[in-house]
């Protein structure tokens, strides 16, 4: 009897050890490329070209970054990315919550049809219109202009869907009605009553949109040609595309471009993970 129990116990812990082993391997596989990037960001190109390549950090952390700075306007590109991402995020939050409010709390003819149309637009692959979009942007004279990114970026069907769900469930009808009887206009109801009640939804959608815009590449590389308006992603690609490949410098640029978002993520990892997975599961 006692022996049996011991065998069972051992088998159980074996299984658990395997689970841990698997998770540790998975985590290491996730981490290793970051570590490798860091190592290379601290090495001279000559050292990187050695066989075997270096596996521990070297002394060129600052030296490499200085080279990055002399080859590109690193902080300028970072600032461009930040500007575009913040502008689109706030714009999307405002427009989507406003539309979400209308779709969930206001009565108007054709509401259902219009909402169905919003959902339908989600099915259209964005690359399909790439060339005419480029044509529109050149016609408007917005090439190398942040408006080329920001204005089309404000179209966000998912955001409207998301906000409508949240306002429908999170804002009671009675409150909206009461405010209207007090003589509030619809916009005042939205601004003074609905907005303060949906701040958590703003956080979630804000993170999703910000990440999307920050990491976007196809559209920015198409319409932002002038290095002065490059977002960080486009600038990194330009750095990587140079004829003379200095891997230490390229990795340094990539490393420092990755660090800001990583820090924000590690600080708010629960909120990030929850937001980004919730956004997926609900849709």
């Amino acid at each position: 009897m006692k022996k049996n129990k011991e065998v069972g116990l051992k088998k159980f812990s074996m299984k658990k050890a395997l689970v841990y082993l698997f998770l540790v391997i998975g985590s290491l596989a996730s981490l290793f490329p970051f570590y490798y990037m860091f190592v290379m960001a601290t090495r001279l190109n000559r050292e990187i070209n050695d066989v075997p390549p270096p596996f521990i950090p070297g002394s060129e952390l600052i030296g490499n970054f200085k080279k990055v700075m002399s080859n590109m306007d690193f902080f300028g590109a970072l600032g461009n990315s930040l500007f575009v991402s913040v502008a689109i995020t706030f714009g999307v939050l405002f427009l989507c919550s406003l539309a979400g409010f209308a779709f969930s709390k206001l009565q108007f003819k054709g509401k259902k049809l219009l909402f169905a149309l919003v959902l339908l637009t989600m099915m259209v692959p964005p690359q399909l219109g790439l060339i005419p979009q480029y044509y529109i942007i050149t016609t408007l004279g917005w090439l190398n202009d942040f408006r080329a990114i920001i204005v089309p970026g404000l179209v966000n069907a998912f955001g409207i869907f998301w906000m409508r769900q949240y306002i429908k469930e999170g804002v009671p009808f009675e409150i909206v009605e009461a405010a209207k009887i007090d003589g509030c206009s619809n916009f005042r109801v939205y601004w003074n009553i609905v907005v303060p009640m949906i701040l958590p939804a703003f956080a979630t959608l804000g993170i999703i949109v910000f990440m999307q815009v920050w990491n976007d590449f196809l559209w920015p590389v198409t319409v932002l040609r002038d290095p002065a308006v490059h977002t960080i992603q486009v600038a990194l690609r330009a750095l990587n595309d140079a004829r003379q490949l200095d891997y230490g410098m390229i990795m340094s640029g990539t490393f420092w471009a990755t660090v800001p978002l990583l820090i924000v993520f590690l600080l708010f990892n629960r909120l990030f993970i929850q937001s980004l997975s919730e956004g997926a599961v609900k849709s």
């Binding site: 406003l98 399909l128 219109g129 089309p152």
Partner: peptide, 30 residues
């Protein structure tokens, strides 16, 4: 009721206007 309808259309219009320019038109034009 009229007011509600008016604000309703007004509040959802930015999406449809922008989508028409940067989504629908490019698709057809392609």
């Amino acid at each position: 009721r009229k007011q509600n309808a008016l604000s309703g259309y007004l509040f959802v219009s930015p999406f449809f206007i922008l989508f028409a320019i940067f989504g629908l038109f490019p698709m057809v034009f392609s």
